[in-house]
């Protein structure tokens, strides 16, 4: 069994901030817009290094999305930064018309997604954003798992022409993917080979999936773990290939089961390889206040529940 080392807890949003800082030096066309959350999004370094290319728009997210769309006309690559809720639900129509339908090269970068935003509670904990964004034609949807991967993804999306939703979070979590690793948009990452069950996870739940695989291994169950950082376009081939071997699958995400990764996987399998599936996701509910760890436990978004669902789905084979 492959052992992954946590090189020290770090927040994914800092991966974004550090990636953006690097882009500031390497790509003169990159501009950044922020709606009064520069510190939270870790955009200070970019703002300080490139004041002419940083646009503080105030608490006006709709205007920010429209401006970002307009800035592409003339060749800029705008990165918008605010919380996931204000990056999607609040501005859905602006993204739909001015960015997605208008084919604009805007990178919508969203922190504080999901329950792990914590104590601020349900008003800020969006669990519907993956669904909102993946339904938009032409939108690439990425949810990264740790600091290193978020930094790599930030660099990679600057080179992809077209609208992107990049989702990351607030808490410090295990950092275990390679430093300065390559990020292939749309390409699943096989983390653990196994034969009894496939676990595909995205975002913060990738580390939990690895922990679950360890626990299952101690029980004599061999779990294959795949990191799906790109939810759209989905690496269908990697998923189908894995379930052809294991015969069952668990999907894990910090998102509502409606509209999330699990539904995309279910569609793929229904079309190509019908397979028993269990979902680790929130159950059509809003979140609430609490620490990230408490919330993940209460809503069943942790290694323990992934392992339980794995055992359950194996019985359904």
């Amino acid at each position: 069994m492959k052992i992954y080392e946590n090189t020290g807890n770090k927040d994914t949003r800092s991966g974004f901030g550090d990636g953006l800082t690097e882009l500031g030096q390497t790509n003169k066309d990159v501009v950044a817009l922020c709606a009064d959350l520069t510190g939270s999004l870790k955009m200070n370094a970019f703002a300080n290094n490139h004041p002419d290319r940083f646009f503080q728009v105030g608490i006006a997210e709709a205007n920010m999305m429209g401006m970002a769309a307009g800035m592409t006309i003339g060749g800029k690559i705008p990165f918008t930064g605010t919380f996931a809720n204000f990056s999607t639900g609040r501005v859905y129509d602006q993204i739909r018309q001015s960015i997605a339908y208008s084919d604009k090269n805007v990178k919508i970068c969203a922190s504080h997604s999901g329950l792990t935003l914590g104590e601020d509670g349900a008003t800020h904990q969006i669990l519907e954003d993956i669904g909102l964004m993946k339904m938009l034609p032409g939108m690439t949807v990425i949810n990264t798992c740790d600091y290193n991967q978020t930094k790599a993804a930030t660099l990679a999306i600057a080179n992809l022409h077209g609208p992107v939703y990049l989702r990351f979070g607030r808490p410090k979590v295990a950092n275990f993917t390679p430093e300065n690793g390559t990020f292939e948009i749309g390409k699943a990452v096989l983390l653990q080979e196994g034969t009894d069950v496939t676990i595909v996870a995205t975002g913060h739940l990738v580390w939990e999936a690895l922990e679950a695989a360890k626990a299952l291994n101690e029980k004599g169950i061999s779990a294959e773990v795949i990191n799906i950082h790109t939810i759209k376009p989905l690496d269908e081939e990697a998923i189908i290939k894995s379930v052809q071997k294991t015969g069952c699958i668990v999907t894990a995400e910090e998102h509502n089961y409606l509209g999330g990764l699990g539904e995309s996987v279910a569609r793929t399998l229904a079309l190509h390889h019908p397979t028993a599936q269990e979902f680790v996701a929130t159950n059509d509910t809003f979140g609430e206040s609490g620490t990230p760890a408490q919330l993940l436990e209460k809503y069943g978004l942790n290694a323990e529940n992934i392992a339980l669902k794995a055992e359950k789905v194996i019985k359904r084979k």
Partner: peptide, 12 residues
């Protein structure tokens, strides 16, 4: 939405 887009284009 058009005024926001125009401001972005003007900034560029």
């Amino acid at each position: 939405q058009g005024m926001s887009v125009a401001i972005g284009a003007a900034a560029t």
